[in-house]
């Protein structure tokens, strides 16, 4: 299917990507072309086929509830673009969570 510029903007919002108008214009045909190619999967009759999410059907992998050392706080905050009061700082949050 062909993606319109508005659809590209909608997807960009979901993906939290600030795209320029030029990028939107360039992406719309590219994404449409790639999707048209990928849509070939729809030719396969697979109604009753179980989807695969892992090549290996491993199950019940878990760990015991035993504490392991945490990282030193300095190590975690060292990479933060902005840290303040031992926390990660971000500008004003506008949206509400989840």
């Amino acid at each position: 299917m062909a993606l319109s510029a508005d659809e590209v903007r909608h997807v960009a919002r979901l993906a939290r990507l600030a795209l320029t108008d030029a990028e939107v214009e360039a992406l719309a045909p590219q994404l449409s072309q790639i999707l048209a190619y990928a849509e070939q999967v729809g030719e396969v009759a697979a109604q009753d086929v179980e989807p695969t999410t892992h090549p290996f059907a491993l199950r019940d992998v878990s760990r015991p509830d035993e504490p392991q050392p945490s990282l030193p706080r300095e190590d975690v905050l060292a990479a933060a673009p902005h840290a303040e009061q031992d926390r990660f700082g971000v500008p004003r949050i506008v949206s509400e969570e989840g």
Partner: peptide, 16 residues
Amino acid sequence: GVRYGLRVDAPTAEEM
């Protein structure tokens, strides 16, 4: 842009 790597500043977290 919160925990590591690049950050481009902006007035709100969402825009950032």
